[in-house]
Design a protein around this nucleic acid. Structure first.
Length: 479
RNA sequence: UCCUCAGUAGCUCAGUUGGUUAGAGCGGCGGACUGUUAAUCCGUAGGUCGUAGGUUCAAGUCCUACCUGAGGAGCCA
């Protein structure tokens, strides 16, 4: 007999028919006559209720069907007599595939804290919350590829090991095969990297953008979707040392085209989640309500599904950094001295509190900020005519802040070299990047979307460590 | 890295001003109950109070250092 997934069994209307299901026990209830086993196989948030006649199977076997154990059950699909479900499986055969010692198994049929489950990351796929997140994450991965594929973009695998340290996107993890107990040295005492695997210092990538630009200068529209590594000592709910980033890069796009694409992309992903993950989003919405039930009304977040729909309704607000500074300078919290970092004038980078004010209180919708001062942005961003600002854009979302960072790139060879020299970027090492500006250069743009930040928004989770299966953060690389 | 808070039973927590034998709920185990839904009811076992020092007649409680976790900030996606 072929196994049927629980999601299919629950949808089936063929009562009286026999099914074989396999999965893990969530809870068991009952009395001397009958046992009710709530079974889950990861195919859906919902459990299948197995009804087992105690006389038929014996107390000893049913005792083994406890929380955490894996079972194979053959049974007849019935209309449920109980009220919690439409159908249930009246068991004819029960096989315990793997026993589970409840005295050692850490997951109990009760609420666990997210912190506790983080320490049990190897088992947390068996919980409602994490299986829901995993399914939504899969749907979002699929939707990313679907969106770009529909638009004729080519997916590019950019290198994970890089020798360029010029990306300027943060601290890097060094990659080496040198024996750290006996590091080869030159005569002058410096490390002899010619003895290392690649014959030069190498690191894990902090961004695929530079290589993505090379691909776009031939394929026109490309995107990357790969792991990204930052060795920053960041301890926040929004940062990981290893995360997944989506970086489209488009030839012939200016900053406006870039913003249009970013907005369309985000809306497509959110629409996809609403259309395809209703059960899991409902569960996550209820989880969030439960978590926040003791918060004051004005501290509660918007209901999850309502929030997702809300983002789809309006155009994102677009304004320049200079305009944002004006709004902030004249804002109530600034005048009342409520900002920890008061806005005094043009030039400073915006702090989290400022971004949150703009998004959550002033506009109450996603905001795209553009044209930042060149001093606070990367070397590759295109200079505006006035020579003070660059064609950068940051997409700011409520709750999570910067979800996308992007720009139109500097395509003019001389201007780019000048900017690199100003910012102490090693021009010689970047010869390959610069050659794209020498040979048939074109205006082009791109952006980076932090996949886990998208996941935070879509799932309503508060900590980025809960939307990736195995989070890597400072002092934590277990599993 | 900085600031703040926390670490007590398998889990979530309480533990008053330092004072007798450290408590509860859930979970586990035993029992009761013809269909449960976080089942219910009765009973029961379970603790080196994060680690190491220190103060004190006396420390879960006070002090110091360290470890771990969380929240905020910075860096950013």
């Amino acid at each position: 007999m072929r196994r049927t997934k629980i999601v299919e069994v629950l949808k089936s209307e063929e009562t009286g028919k026999e099914f074989l299901v396999k999965g893990w026990v969530r809870t068991r209830r009952g009395n001397k006559q009958v046992s009710f086993i709530a079974m889950n196989d990861g195919s859906t948030i919902h459990n299948l209720q197995i009804v087992a006649d105690v006389e038929l199977f014996g107390e000893e076997l049913l005792r083994r069907a406890n929380t955490g154990a894996s079972l194979a059950v053959v049974g007849e699909l019935n209309q449920s007599q109980g009220t919690g479900q439409n159908v249930e499986l009246l068991a004819k055969k029960i096989e315990v595939i793997g026993d589970c010692d409840v005295n050692e198994y850490p997951l109990q049929p009760k609420k666990h804290s997210l912190e506790f489950l983080r320490e049990k990351a190897h088992l947390r796929f068996r919980t409602n919350t994490f299986s829901a997140i995993a399914r939504v994450r899969h749907a979002m991965i699929f939707a990313v590829h679907s969106f770009f594929s529909l638009k004729g973009f080519v997916n590019i695998h950019t290198p994970i090991i890089t020798s360029s340290d010029a990306e300027g996107a943060g601290e890097m993890f060094q990659v080496t095969t040198l024996n750290l107990d006996n590091i080869p040295k030159n005569d002058d005492g410096a490390i002899d990297f010619s003895k290392d695997f690649f014959g030069r210092p190498t690191n894990l990538t902090v961004s695929g953008q530079l290589e993505g630009e090379l691909a776009a200068m031939g394929l026109a529209d490309i995107y990357t979707f790969g792991p990204t590594f930052r060795a920053e000592n960041s301890n926040t709910t929004r940062h990981l040392a290893e995360f997944w980033m989506i970086e489209p890069e488009m030839a012939f796009y200016d900053l406006n085209d870039n913003m249009d694409l970013a907005e369309e992309f985000l809306k497509y992903l959110i629409r996809y989640a609403l259309d395809n993950c209703a059960d899991d989003l409902n569960f996550l919405s209820n989880r969030l309500k439960e978590e926040e039930k003791n918060k004051k009304a004005d501290e509660k977040s918007m209901e999850l599904i309502e929030k997702l729909k809300f983002v789809l309704e309006d155009d994102f607000v677009r304004l320049t950094y200079t305009e944002a500074i004006e709004i902030l300078r004249n804002s109530k919290p600034n005048k009342k001295g409520q900002f920890k970092y008061p806005i005094e004038g043009y030039g400073a980078d915006l702090q989290s509190e400022h971004e949150r004010y703009l998004v959550e209180r002033h506009f109450k919708k996603p905001v795209i900020l553009t044209d930042y001062p060149k001093e606070i942005k990367a070397f590759y961003m295109k200079l505006n005519e006035e020579n003070k600002t660059v064609r950068a854009m940051d997409v700011l979302f409520p709750q999570i802040g910067e979800i996308i960072g992007g720009s139109q790139r500097e395509e003019n060879y001389d201007k780019l070299v000048a900017r690199m020299e100003e910012m102490d970027i090693p021009v010689e090492e970047m010869w390959w990047y610069l050659e794209t500006r020498k040979f048939g250069t074109v205006p082009h743009s791109g952006f980076g979307l932090g996949f886990e930040r998208l996941m935070l928004f879509v799932t309503g989770m508060g900590n980025i460590r809960d939307v990736i299966p195995f989070p890597r953060t400072p002092k934590n690389a277990e599993f």
